[in-house]
Design a protein around this nucleic acid. Structure first.
Length: 946
DNA sequence: GGGTGTGGAAAT
DNA sequence: ACTTATTTCCACACCC
């Protein structure tokens, strides 16, 4: 159901009108532009290696030397230091390795880091001796003499709690230590108190131990009591990374003499170098200077084709996989060095690519798995591979009993299995998805990346490619794939070209959007593994940073039960003075408003004064502040907050990155720096959200409410300041008027007539207003709108002046139909043209005329049906769009007889209702369609009051 | 993360 | 029983 949509149908919004190449030269037999591109790649003799024409059954990696990684230089642990960039990190339970620290008996948790060296060799590093732990406050009168009894009792309580003991665990609690810590939640006088640090044998024992302690635990002569747990909900990987000072994708150094090389080399990936090291012996380098570089990662992009039955979506239990195209590229290089298609049955050659033909599907699958293991990619990409290609391949291999297929990771013996998972977050909503484990390889499904990071009208590969690359898929209708397969080696060749392109496009997109670089920078900045960025939400990133900062001050993070549901007051939107402004409107913005507020007022968990604390601690009035919500926080002079510190680090790092970016000349390094500054900005902004997430790891409404409270106060104050200062009475040309404002910005009519004056006065005003606020809060002049059409709250348009006083940079539209994806293209185009006529040509009469004309065209059937499709139904979710809706044929041009999904009888609705001065133009039209071919009733209403 | 307008569906 | 006009509600997609 959630499968890839493979039609390049005409209904794909804007992309549909795109024409590929020169129209006159588009003959079926002439090679496509893509084929020419393929042919121009280096090493055009690649097909010499191809198995074309042979049985193909005798597949051998040895015949394809280019697939392998470069030969690893000899490595001598006693004289060579091993340096690699860590790409992925997980842990497993295994037996202890002789000579390594940590528990010796039973199963021990081992951290496994996968990485790549500068020379492009892969490393699998097993880190030993690190065990999970958490804290509880020590009870009153507890001394170190009680430690062993506490440990003994807790150990037996956890053992008793286990329903089964498959692993035959004898020791659950490895250690209990007394340590001086302080809770990070609330200010309590900078006093370290006794905490018990409880170290468990395995990560999965932490939760039961926590529960037992919370519910009431008795030992020795102490009374039964509940112990609130601290840091018992931290992922083991994050725990390790925080404690070892390691961030995502950082460079790791294993000093000579401190690690050992494993004798057995992994058979599935014999170039992956397995080493063992003690967790305190490894050195992780902060991503600074030379350590910002990126290793030559291998990126594999692939796409599969299957021969479906007519009108039925392919099912792995029935329909065969007929082709798999793969492209492999090194990060940082321009083009893929492996371009290959595995086909079922013969296939004519394609210049610039290698074709391997198989007569049996089982061999095709098995060989492709072998290919993956040989290529040993660090990153696997493709389009919707997570929910379609990979599950399909695994299911198909299972159906055909290709038992050697599902070993796609870098660890020998670990089977790749399909799991259903429901990922839930505010960002993407609840989404059912599938996951396939591939240890050591990062799955970078481009569709998932796009869904996360980009708002698009359509998420089909075709539309996305057109949007970002001005390129489209090869023209093969989904419905004819089976026919092409059943044809001859020429028709299968056509399919192969199509398939190759579908593997190539994700690679190009990945490059164009700099996904790998940006995600790596995000991993480095926030300290989480790369994989977390795609599989987890925003919270874990803040937790990672919070823990790092807290550790330095001996602060520990409580585990809080999330209780949601109180009324929450957010930002203010100033009531707009709606209308058309034919004078320049200056826009002033608070830069990084929420982070600035938190820094300026030292808002943090550690500075929060809970009820009665101020009196209890005897704080004087100048030692704390009262926020607009009435909450109290101590000043930085009493205790500097963690969150302000994190924010300062992020924002100063961003400033540095931006400065470096200006100096840098190398385009590749520039990309890295730009990705870095972006990651830093996003991270700074997510700190506020973290404190306000009511179902989060550590919500603190006092903080988030105070932040928005300050924000509301500031926006009101700004309005008053500007309107009271810039007046005729004070010698200015006119009385300034704030006509609108949202959260962190105000739009001011300064009463000047030119853009230049507006910029000058706007800059002055911003500076003047800033002086009324606490550092680092700063109001900045942003831009001038001239003219400006203010339709409503969050809905406006204007010509945007920023870089020049003479020419506008763009026509800026916010919230209007032109930028919304839930309208059909016709509406967007109509409104856009009208706005142009109003704002650029300054001829509203023409705008009305145009609208009438379009409506008339609509009534008279002169408009392409693709323009009428409501995108809302189709873009509701990409899954629907890429799968279920695929069969909806919209090629039909006759609007009167169209079969349509009964759930969306209304095909189109155009509306235009801008306020222009006092005259109101409103155009409404709707076409209702019957469910099935019946007479079409077209109730249209057209009202123009002008 | 909350605030907002919008259109369609359900409720009235 | 059915249609129609109005209100209420909610999902959605946007703004910041």
């Amino acid at each position: 159901m959630d499968a890839k949509r493979r039609m390049g149908g005409p209904m794909l919004g804007g992309a549909s009108q795109a024409k590929r190449g020169k129209p006159g030269t588009e003959w079926e037999d002439s090679p496509s532009q893509f084929e020419e591109e393929l042919a121009q790649f280096d090493d055009v003799d690649m097909e010499m290696e191809s198995g074309e024409g042979q049985a193909g059954e005798l597949f051998s990696a040895a015949l394809n030397p280019r697939w392998r990684r470069p030969a690893a230089p000899p490595l001598l642990p006693h004289t060579d230091t091993l340096v690699f960039q860590q790409i992925d990190l997980d842990y497993y339970l295994g037996s202890a390795v002789a000579g390594m620290p940590g528990q010796v008996e039973g199963k021990v948790p081992v951290i496994r880091m996968f990485g790549v060296t500068d020379s492009g060799n892969s490393v699998c590093c097993h880190v030993h001796g690190f065990a999970p732990y958490f804290y509880v406050p020590a009870p009153v009168d507890f001394t170190s003499s009680h430690l062993s009894e506490f440990q003994k009792e807790l150990n037996s309580a956890v053992l008793k709690d286990m329903r089964s003991n498959k692993d035959n665990i004898s020791v659950t609690v490895l250690a209990v230590d007394l340590t001086r810590k302080e809770s990070m939640y609330g200010y309590h006088g900078n006093r370290l108190v006794d905490f018990l640090r409880i170290t468990m044998a395995m990560p999965r024992l932490v939760a039961p131990a926590k529960r037992i302690l919370e519910q009431g635990f008795k030992f020795d002569n102490f009374t039964t009591q509940g112990y609130p747990a601290y840091e018992a909900n931290i992922d083991f990987e994050i725990r390790f990374m925080v404690d070892s000072g390691m961030v995502g994708c950082c460079w790791v150094e294993l000093p000579k003499g401190k690690y050992s090389l494993r004798e057995e080399r992994s058979g599935t990936s014999d170039l992956c170098c397995p080493v063992d090291v003690g967790w305190t012996d490894l050195i992780s380098h902060p991503a600074e200077g030379d350590w910002q570089r990126i290793s030559p990662l291998r990126v594999l992009s692939f796409d599969i084709e299957c021969a479906g039955r007519k009108g039925v979506f392919p099912e792995a239990e029935v329909d065969p996989v007929i082709q798999i195209a793969s492209m492999v590229q090194c990060q940082g290089e321009k083009e893929p060095f492996v371009r290959t298609v595995f086909t079922l049955q013969s296939c004519a050659s394609i210049v610039g690519s290698q074709i391997l033909c198989f007569s049996q599907e089982t061999m095709l699958l098995q060989s492709w798995a072998e290919f993956v293991r040989t290529v040993d990619p660090d990153i696997i990409t493709g389009y919707n591979i997570q929910n379609f290609d990979l599950p399909y391949l695994l299911n198909r291999a299972a159906t055909l009993k290709v038992n050697l297929f599902p070993y796609l990771g870098r660890v020998r013996g670990i089977k790749s299995v399909l799991k259903d998972s429901t990922f839930q977050s505010k960002q993407v909503g609840r989404r059912e998805s599938k996951t396939v484990n591939m240890e050591g390889r990062v799955q970078f499904d481009l569709l998932q990346v796009l869904l996360r990071d980009y708002k698009l009208r359509s998420y089909t590969l075709n539309a996305v490619s057109f949007h970002f690359l001005q390129e489209q898929k090869e023209d093969v209708q989904h419905s004819i794939i089976t026919d092409l397969q059943n044809g001859n080696d020429q028709t299968r060749r056509r399919l192969a070209v199509y398939c190759l392109k579908d593997a190539y496009l994700p690679l190009r997109l990945l490059q164009k959007l700099m996904c790998v670089i940006n995600y790596m920078e995000m991993a480095r900045v926030t300290g989480v593994p790369l994989t977390y960025l795609l599989s987890r939400g925003q919270q874990i990133k803040v937790v990672s940073q919070l823990l790092r900062q807290a550790m330095k001050q001996k602060l520990v993070m409580p585990v809080v039960k999330s209780d949601g549901g109180e009324d929450y007051v957010g930002a203010t939107v100033i009531e707009p003075v709606k209308g058309y402004y034919s004078v320049p409107i200056a826009t002033l913005d608070f830069s990084s408003l929420y982070p600035s507020i938190m820094m300026a007022h030292n808002l943090c968990y550690t500075s929060l004064l809970q009820k009665g604390q101020a009196e209890k601690l005897g704080l004087s009035a100048d030692e704390f502040i009262k926020t607009p919500t009435g909450d109290l926080f101590v000043k930085a002079s009493v205790r500097k907050g963690l969150l302000p510190e994190i924010l300062e680090n992020l924002l100063s790092a961003r400033k540095r990155a931006k400065a470096d970016l200006k100096m840098e000349t190398d385009p590749f390094k520039k990309q890295v720096l730009d990705g870095r500054q972006l990651a830093l900005k996003i991270s700074a902004n997510s700190v506020y959200g973290f404190t306000g997430a009511q179902v989060g790891k550590l919500p603190c409404l006092e903080i988030s409410q105070s932040v928005t409270g300050f924000g509301r106060q500031m926006i009101e104050q700004t309005k008053q300041l500007v309107e009271s200062q810039y007046t005729i009475a004070n010698g200015y040309q006119a009385d300034a008027k704030v006509i609108y404002g949202d959260t962190d910005s105000v739009m001011v009519k300064l009463g000047v007539t030119s853009v230049e004056e507006a910029m000058k006065l706007g800059t002055e005003a911003a500076q003047w207003v800033s002086s009324h606020f606490v550092m680092p809060i700063k109001l900045e002049f942003e831009k001038v709108y001239y003219p400006y059409l203010l339709i409503n709250k969050k809905r406006y348009a204007g010509l945007y002046f920023s870089s020049s006083t003479q020419h506008h940079d763009k026509m800026d539209c916010k919230g209007i139909e032109t930028v919304r994806r839930d309208n059909c293209p016709l509406v967007a185009n109509l409104i856009n043209t009208c706005l142009q006529k109003i704002l650029i040509d300054r001829d509203p009469g023409d705008a009305v005329g145009h609208a009438k004309e379009v409506i008339s065209d609509l009534l008279c059937n002169r408009i392409d049906i693709s323009q009428l499709v409501i995108t809302k139904e189709l873009t509701r979710s990409a899954q629907e769009y890429t799968g279920k809706q695929a069969h909806v044929e919209l090629a039909e041009r006759t609007p009167s007889i169209t079969t349509w999904n009964s759930s969306c009888p209304n095909l189109s609705c155009a509306s235009l209702s801008p306020f222009w001065e006092k005259r109101r133009l409103s155009v409404c039209y709707s076409v209702s369609r019957p469910v099935r071919a019946r007479a079409c009733k077209t109730p249209g209403s057209l009202t123009a009051v002008y």
